[in-house]
Design a binder for these strands. Sequence first.
DNA 1: TCTGGGGTCCTAGGACCC
DNA 2: TCTGGGGTCCTAGGACCC
Length: 432
Amino acid sequence: MYALVDGNNFYVSCERVFRPDLNGRPVIVLSNNDGCAIARSNEAKALGVKMGAPWLGIRHLEEKEGLVALSANFALYGDMSDRMMSLVAGLGHQQEIYSIDESFVDISGIRGDLTDRSRRLRQRVLDWTGLPTCVGIGPTKTLAKLANHIAKTAERKPGSYPAEFSQVCNLAAMEREALQQVLAATEVREVWGVGPRIGQQLEAEGIKTVLDLTQLDLATVRRRWSVVLERTVRELQGTPCVDLEEAPPAKKEIACTRSFGRAVMDLGELEEAVTTFASRAAEKLRRQGSHAGQVLTFVRTSPFRPDKQYSRSIIVPLLRPTADTAALVEGALMGLRTIYRSGYKFAKAGVMLVDLSDACVEQGELDFEEGHGEGRCRLMTAMDALNRRYGRGTVIIGSAGTGEMPRNWAMRQERRTPRYTTRIGEIPVGKA
DNA sequence: TCTGGGGTCCTAGGACCC
DNA sequence: TCTGGGGTCCTAGGACCC
C-alpha cells in the first residue's frame, strides 16, 4: 500500500510561507530568465494562466488582475522541500522522494485508519512548515498518484468529487462501486504515464475515462501501444508493477544547460558560459561519486526567432574517466571551439557528462605524466568544500571569467525573493 | 518581446557476429 | 533455383515525468 504526498502549487506555497500578503492573490513563479510560468496559485489558474505560458504573453494581467510574478528561488524551494520530506517520512516505513514536491511512502501493514493518519500528517506538515499538501492512497503507485489528483481536485473544485475526498483520498478504502464511479469521473489524461500523445490516441479510440482504460484487454494495449502502457493499466487494476525506490539509483548522465539572458554571439562569452556549466556539472558528478568518460557540448540559436538558425552538439572523449573540473572544462571547451560558428545569435548552450562510471573503479595505467590522481582529487574536494561553505563561485576555473567580459549569457532574475532559509544575511526579521 | 531545466525508458533499425 | 537462424550492441527518435 502506498501514499503519495504532494505539495499544492509547491513553489508558490513556499513563497507564501514568507510572504503571507500573497495569500488569496493570483501568484505565479517564473522559469529561469523569467521566461514562462512554472507554478501557479489557484487564483492564477482561475485567471486562465496556463502551465508554461510565456510571461510576456500574460504580463497584462499584472496590472489588470493584480497577478504577482516571482523569479524562481530554487535555494528556497530545495530547503523547504527537505523540511517537508523529513516530516512526510514519518507516515510509513520507507520513502521515495520522487520530485522536489512529492514523495511516495510505503504504508503496508501500518495499523489503524490510514485516511485518518494521513489527515493528521497533512496537518502536521502544514503547522510545522506552512506548506499545504494533499495525500493519495492506493494499492499501487499509479493508483496513489491518481488518488492524489482526486484529493487535489476535490479541494480546489468543490462538487467535482465527493467532499470527503478533499485533501486526502484513499482509493483502497472504497467499495468497488464507489471506486468505479470515481474512475469513470476522471479523464484518462490524468493517469500517471499517459501524456498528451497517448492521451489523444486513447480518446480517439473512445477510451475517455480511467475506468475505460482499466477495462482494456492487456494484450491489445501491449500490441497497440507498448509494455509501458500495459504496466500502467495493470497498476490501475491494482497489480503493483512499479516498486518503491528508497535510494535513488546513480544518474547515467549529468547535465547543466541554460538559456541565456540575452543573445550571445562572441566565442569568448560562450567559453565563459560553457566553463561555468561544465564546472557545475562536474560538481554534481563528484557529489554522486562518478567519473565521466565523455563530455557533450551543445550550442543553439533560438528556434522561436526568425534569425538564421544553428544548432550543433559534439561529444569529446576524455583521455581517462575523470571528475576533475579542469579536465572536463578542457574537453567541453575543445568541443565548443569545434562547433562554434560566428555570425549567429546564440540563445542557449549546455554541457552534458556521459559515459559515467563509478569513481572507485579505476583503470590502471603507466604513469607517464604528472597532474592527475591523488593530488587533483584532494584539490577538487577542497574546492567543493570552499564553494559549499562560502557560496557557489568562491573558487572557480579562470576561463569562467571574472567579469571583464560582458555577460549576456547570465540569466535574468528580476523578481527573486530572498533566500530566507539558507543565507544568513537574508533571514527574515520580525518586528514586535 | 518572449516562450526552462533535467532526467528516464522503450522501440526500431542497422551493423555486426557466429 | 536459391540465397539460414539467432543473437548483441549501438544510436536516434519518441514519449513520458516533474
